[in-house]
Nucleic acid binder design. Structure first.
Lengths: 112, 112
DNA sequence: TTTTATGCATAATTTTCTTATGTATTTGGA
DNA sequence: TCCAAATACATAAGAAAATTATGCATAAAA
């Protein structure tokens, strides 16, 4: 995460969301997609990304398949069955949190 | 910040927002207001709150007045002139970030 | 009367980043 | 053709920002 470096802790739910939506992705692809979706506002640093992906794999939330693209390696990540459950919970938490932030930042327009 | 402990880094903009809206507040009051506004979803821990308030004071973003309420001390914080400018910037950044999060979490309904 | 709420504060630890570095292949522009 | 940028992974050192655990003290409520 870069650009204002705000809000540590959001990287994990973001990755889970990407995997939930796209099924199977490799690390670099995630960084590019986040840049695209957010119009360059957010960019994930490799130093944050890879260690987190490894942690998620250790925890059994994601599983990997390594493939060669020409001579270059790609390590594809996808959600495990248990990972999908975790992701649903994480998404609910995230939405609740975003709603809370709305209450604080836009007390008038926020719908609750 | 508690309850899911997500999103470190949001505490500072939240406090700035509270001070911007309410003018003058003491620490404990901030914790109670956040609980109220977010319907109990977010609660600020004292270990996070007070050191941050002290940092903001050192940086000249807030200034303090200590008052006695009966026999109990209250330390009131308010934004300095420079703090108000900083707050405006922080609010813009925060909104941009929340918009980015929306793009990721709700790609269909997010308005950009 | 003893717990809960109010009100501040700090220290140790943990979590989660940034920054810097390393390796290696491929593509594109000067 | 050569060098920079992009692609693709990885890890280590350090910083930032929390949590958790204390501590002190007064007031209200059970």
């Amino acid at each position: 995460m870069k650009k204002s470096s705000l809000y540590k802790g959001c990287l994990e739910p973001i990755l889970l969301r990407l995997l939930k939506d796209n099924g199977r992705m490799y690390g670099y692809q995630m960084t590019q997609m986040v840049k695209e979706i957010t119009k360059g506002e957010l960019s994930i640093t490799e130093g944050a990304l890879y260690p987190l992906l490894h942690k998620l794999e250790e925890q059994g939330i994601v599983e990997t398949e390594t493939e060669m693209n020409g001579n270059r390696m790609r390590k594809y990540y996808s959600l495990t069955k248990s990972g999908k459950k975790q992701t649903s919970l994480a998404m609910e938490e995230m939405k609740a949190f975003m709603q809370s932030l709305e209450f604080i930042v836009n007390p008038k327009t926020a719908i609750g």
